[in-house]
């Protein structure tokens, strides 16, 4: 296995773990937020966990699109340079 395949495999694994963590965080966040604890600070922690989890899911879902967009934009702005002016 080459280093490229290793990095790609690692990326897939990290992404799977990230999706799993998103679910866990989302669930924990809602659990804290919905728990019958009358402390505002705890509720706010639950809220922030839910927000972070949703943001993480958003960036994860958008990941491949972002990289594709970068490649598209750079390939479209890269035109062969004109020859330098001759004195």
């Amino acid at each position: 296995m080459g280093i490229a395949e290793f990095i790609q495999g690692l990326t897939v694994q990290v992404m799977s773990i990230a999706w799993l963590l998103f679910l866990i965080t989302w669930v924990i966040g809602w659990a804290i937020k919905g728990s019958p604890i009358p402390i505002h600070r705890v509720k706010r922690t639950g809220q922030s966990l839910v927000e972070d989890a949703v943001l993480a899911a958003f960036w994860m879902a958008l990941g491949s699109s972002i990289f594709a967009l970068i490649s598209y934009i750079t390939s479209s702005i890269y035109q062969p340079m004109p020859p330098p002016p001759q004195p």
Partner: peptide, 10 residues
Amino acid sequence: VIGVLIMALP
């Protein structure tokens, strides 16, 4: 992806 993973950590 690691960045996203850190963001998703509880």
